[in-house]
Each structure stands twice: as C-alpha cells, then as structure tokens.
Write a protein that binds this DNA or RNA. Structure first.
Lengths: 337, 337
DNA sequence: TACCAATATGGTACCGCTTACATAAATCGG
DNA sequence: CCGATTTATGTAAGCGGTACCATATTGGTA
C-alpha cells in the first residue's frame, strides 16, 4: 500500500496537519519538526495523492488534448510544443485521438469532464454547432489549436491559412509559373479547405491568372490512402500544368510519388509546393518546397493561452495568428532568368 | 459550480446513497425513485467526479505512456492501437514524451505516481538499472512496448528484432544480392541496435557472405537530422554495394534522398530495404520495401496485457513477440531470373 | 390482524488531503 | 514573573463520492 500522510505523521510523531504544512507552507513549522517530517517523507518515499488534492483544490493540473488523426505527422511537433509548455506550467496532457468520429469526441469530452480536467486543447477540426453546445454545457476552458471559429467567440491559435496559401501560390507565380494547379481539401472544410482555396484564387486574380482557378481537385477530409488518385485526376484534367500547390505535405509526397511513376520529372516538368513542412519534407525526392507552419510554437502558445484562461488572466487577443514562411527546396523551379 | 451527488439527491428528494445506488446497482432501488433520480441527473447534467471515485476505488482508469520521441512516425499507429484498446477497456491515456532525457522520464514517472495512474506503458527504450529501481520503487504495473529486458522480469510486447533483421537481409540475399551494407543503430542500443545487427550478421554467415559484415555504419541514437551523413559515409566506405539494409524507414528515406542526389538509381544500382513500414513508406520514390512491424497490434496488445496485470489475471507469457513481415515494394530489385 | 423475513432507504464513516478554528506553547515588555 | 500577544500545533470539517450498518418499509403467511 502506498504511504499516506497519516503514515508520515505517525513516523514523525506529529499531526497530519503539520505534515501538510511542511509541504505547503514550510515556514510556518518549527525547524526541529520540519526535519523530522522531511526525514519521514524521505524514509517512506511519500508522495501526496493528486486525487485527494484535486478534490480540494478543484484543479488537477491536467489538460485534455483532442486530435483528429494522430497518424498525421503534422501533430508531432504541435504535441512537442504542448508538452514543453505543459511541463513549464505544471500540467500533464491527456491526448485523445478521435479519428474524426463524433461519438468518440463526445465520449472523450465526457471523460475530460469526469476527470475534472482543467482545460481542453481542441485541434484542427471546425467547431460545429453541436460541438459548441456540448462544450458550452461542460463549461471547461478551451483553446482551439490550428483551427478557429468565426461564429463563436472561442480563443484560438493558428496561422493565417488564407494568406499562407496566397503566399505559396504567389511564390509559384513569382517564379514564372502561369499554369498552376491545386490539390485542395474540400470547401466544406472551413479551416484548411475553403481558406486555402480562397488564398489560391486571390493570388491568381491579383496576377491575372484567373483562368487557372478550376485547375483544382478536391480531396475528401484528410484522406490519405489515395493521394495518387487525386494526383491522377488533376493531371488528366489539366495535362499542361507547370506547377501544383498541394494543401499538405503528405498530399505533396503522394503527388511526387505519382509523378515519378508517370515518368514526369520534378521540378523540370512540374513544380510542387506543399504545406506544413513536416519533418520528412526535407527528405523527399526531390526535397520538398513547402510553406512552414510554426507547429511547435502553435502547440506551445496554445498551452500558454489555455493557462492564462484557466488562471483567469484576461487574455487580450482572442484569435491569435502565428507567422508562416515559404521554404524553398528542390521541388520547385524558377522559370524566369 | 459543477453539480454534485448532493444536488441530485436534493432535487430528487432522496438520500445521496440512493443516488449512488442508482448509478452503481440500479436494481436495488425501487422504480419510482430511480426515475426521479434519473430525472434529476438528467436535469442537472450530473456526472460523477472521477477524483472522488478514484480515491475510494483506488483506481483511476488511466494509463501513463512513456514515449522517447513522439516525432517518430513509428509511434503513430502504436498510439492508435493503445487508444483503441484503452477505449475498449475503459482507460484513458496520458502520453509523455521524454526526448530520451532521464530527468524528464523520472519527473513523468513521479507525476504518474502522484496521479495514481493504474499502470505504465514504457516504449522503445532499454530499461537501465536505475530506471528499473525507480520503477520497482513506484510499484506500478508496467508493460514494455517495442522493447524488453533480459535482465529483469518485466512483461513486454514487441517483435523479434533479430529475426526480423535476419529476414530482411535474407530477402536481399535470396534476391541475388551479394554485396550488402547496413545502416544500423549503435550496438549499445540493446533493442534495435545490437539485435538487428546480429540478425544481419547471422544471415550473412548462413549464406557465406561474412565478408560483408563490416559494411556497416552506425548512427547514434535515433538521430534523424543527418541521415544523409550516414548514407554518405557508408557509400564512400563501400562504393560497390548492391543493396543496403536500413534499420528504420526514416533512415531509408534519408538514404533514398542521398542516392537520388548522387544520381544513383534505386533499385537499378542499389536496392534499399527499410524497417517499420511507416505510413509514408508507400509514398516514397521509389516505394519502399521494408519489414513491417505490427505497430497497431503492438499498441493494442500492450494495453490488454497491462490490463491483465492490473486486474491480476495471471498472464502466462511474460515476453510476447508479435509477427513481422517483409513487404516488397519498388526499392529492391531481384537480380536472379 | 399479527409476525417475520426480505427488501429498500437513510445515516454515517471513510478514502487522503487541506484549512479554518481552537488551543497550547513561546515570546515579550512592564 | 506575569498577562498579553504572537506563533506553532492539533482537532475536526469537508471536498465528492462509496459502502457498511441500522432502520423503515413491504409483502407473505399463519
């Protein structure tokens, strides 16, 4: 049986409140007793029971993280950032993978509530009305990570997806490309779908390339198993593309794979730019040009933000946007000069 | 404030014990009251406090997971397997990333202890003596995942790494390769280093190819940033290799990248076989031949095993080995016939 | 209708800890 | 050296539940 505060008190021959004081306000207990208590704690290897403490303080120092698909390497650095910030602020993370299944999500939220978690980090997915109402019902502090909500006043941290997509496409245009295609997420995806497509179109329009705006194939959700299919559809629809903007690195890698099988050279015949800058992007053949999200920072910042809310420090900015960056590698070619 | 059992009791006009009974042994309470209680629960959206329950039951239905490097895609499916099994058995997972830092590890173990976690899943890393003693001290059920210990009697689930490496190399040999190299983890890594190198050597010896056994470059830990360096060292040391066995898919992808830069064709000039079968292995250029670990099953099984230990169901097999499989894709060539 | 067994319900101690309150010990000036 | 004030320690209530035990209620039988 694990030693309790009683065992320590008995061994040190003091009352349990004295033991408690030694741990929480050591200055208020006289030196001689403090030593005895500390000795006993050490001898018994006593550690306070976080359940009992949590019951009193109404704080568990635990944060629940909702992730739609943990297999997506995009989350790796987000989680690391969250981890590091949590460690700094004294939280642990409960990470839950929903597979984008509403039942699973709700069951996890329920579990969070019962476990008296201090706050929720909700990543990537849009906040649908029923999700929102459930969240409201639970009244738990929440921060949206790599997603946000325009309908509801929920705090969030992410990049500016529209601008990032714009910058990616503008990079291609500035490199001299005029026949540009896109592999996009469905428009119903308000976070990474509609916004990135919108950025694509805006860049085209501003450079009088509006005829390209239908060179798009939409993939459903984050379907991963068939990126070749998307690539093949796009290429047969628009055979004369000189560059493709792909809305995730994983899709870009699928495209690279498909082009290679078709004997189409990258970047000589077609340039490819991805999105996310996952760890493997620098090891593809050829190395992938992409727009980098500050994933680690997004994770880190989201925990800080959640903490501020938990501690009731009024946070000035509701929706935060972190800077992105185009990383040029070898999968894109500059046609001019 | 969250509603408590008292609020429910008051609203339903019964005692708290009756409410408790409705939740735990509903048959023992008369229909009319049960309905009233259920109504009150519903009206107040009451959910029992898991902290209070945990205090009594001495069970939190929470499992702590220790992962050395969450960025490694190898863990993605392990975690999914763990998740699914946890869901089935009613646990939640607290996932912690140690970055292979002893201080972090110990701090997490400590946190697990305080949070009264039911058991630990310890992945990948060897169990050093001081780790073992710490684990002993904490007396928490533990299962080693993708690692095991010959010194200590700790339950584990993993593949047979020696045999898997043997099979990978034998696959190359059976394909007609005679000049085989290896990119290995250091021998001090008793799990994925020494064993896989041993499997490599055994395959060579059994096929009279012992002269190849020095065609090896060892990479330190899971260093990821410089797989090109390892590739370059190996190739300059042994320029006439026809096949390379690489001890992880990420290293294989790095090798692919390096060979491409050098203008060396895969698999025409050099065949490459990886290890792990991560999700991206089927999207490399060319698609990667590799030995597949049943990662999802390893994760799933490890939770089942841990649960058996927690529930004191004596588990017959201490060290479990799950089957692996060579997956032939396009990065290897058959020289014979 | 009275009596007893079976069943339903309420009261309460307790899980491990914190904290307000009461009490005992220590400190101090006059 | 004593009474007042400060400081240290113990006692007990309570956080939100469960479970044991003791009543209260019910129902069947004589």
């Amino acid at each position: 049986m694990k030693p309790t505060i009683k065992d320590v008190a008995k061994l040190a021959n003091v009352s349990i409140s004295t033991v408690s004081r030694v741990m929480n306000s050591p200055d208020s207990v006289v030196e001689s007793k403090k030593v005895r208590v500390l000795d006993a704690i050490d001898k018994l290897k006593y550690k306070p029971n976080a359940l009992a403490r949590g019951l009193i303080y109404k704080k568990t120092n635990t944060i629940g993280v909702i992730i739609p698909d943990i297999r997506n390497p995009y989350y790796a650095d987000i989680i690391r950032g969250m981890e590091d910030a949590s460690k700094k602020l004294g939280y642990s993370l409960i990470i839950c993978n929903t597979d984008r299944d509403k039942k699973r999500l709700f069951s996890y939220l329920n579990n969070f509530y019962e476990k008296q978690i201090d706050g929720i980090l909700y990543t990537s997915d849009p906040v649908f009305p029923d999700y929102y109402h459930e969240l409201q019902r639970l009244r738990m502090p929440i921060v949206l990570v790599s997603t946000h909500s325009m309908e509801y006043d929920l705090p969030s941290v992410k990049i500016n997806d529209e601008q990032a997509a714009y910058d990616a496409v503008k990079f291609l245009i500035d490199s001299g490309h005029r026949k540009i295609g896109m592999i996009a997420f469905e428009l119903t995806d308000g976070i990474a779908g509609w916004t990135r497509y919108h950025g694509f179109v805006r860049a085209l329009r501003e450079h009088d390339l509006e005829e390209c705006k239908d060179n798009v194939v939409f993939v459903e959700g984050w379907t991963y198993e068939t990126p070749d299919a998307a690539a093949s559809t796009l290429l047969s629809k628009c055979p004369d593309l000189s560059a493709v903007f792909t809305v995730s690195d994983e899709l870009a890698i699928g495209l690279l794979c498909y082009l290679n099988e078709q004997g189409i050279k990258v970047p000589e015949q077609i340039s490819v730019i991805g999105f996310d800058n996952i760890r493997l992007a620098k090891l593809t053949v050829p190395k992938l040009t992409t727009v980098a999200q500050p994933t680690y920072e997004i994770g880190y910042r989201s925990v800080e933000k959640l903490n501020a809310i938990i501690e009731q420090q009024e946070d000035p900015v509701l929706r935060e946007y972190l800077p992105h960056e185009v990383i040029e590698r070898a999968s894109t070619r500059r046609l001019n000069r």
